[in-house]
């Protein structure tokens, strides 16, 4: 298990838990990111926000938030 901010580009992970405030958690859920969703890390430079692919859309997530989203190895389908 590791924070999303630490993942490398191209990796496929599964969201383990979203450790941020209620409001943001809800927003992320509206955008399709909640516990158990599969995500692909599209872009992660050392600084700046992270781009992930989730369901069929791409999301930009600030570095601060990306450090609070814990992910684990994705299940193979």
């Amino acid at each position: 298990m590791m924070p999303l901010a630490m993942c490398s580009e191209g990796e496929v992970k599964e969201v383990h838990c979203v450790g941020c405030g209620e409001g943001l958690k809800k927003r992320l859920c509206d955008l399709g990111l909640y516990d158990g969703t599969k995500i692909k890390i599209v872009k992660n430079d050392i600084s700046g926000p992270v781009i992930i692919k989730i369901k069929d859309s791409k999301l930009v997530i600030g570095r601060g938030q990306a450090s609070k989203i814990m992910v684990k190895e994705g299940r193979q389908e």
Binding site: L24, G64, Q65
Partner: peptide, 12 residues
């Protein structure tokens, strides 16, 4: 103070 969360969709 700290900055607020940043989440945004990147449309195709």
């Amino acid at each position: 103070g700290t900055s607020s969360p940043f989440v945004m969709e990147l449309p195709p």
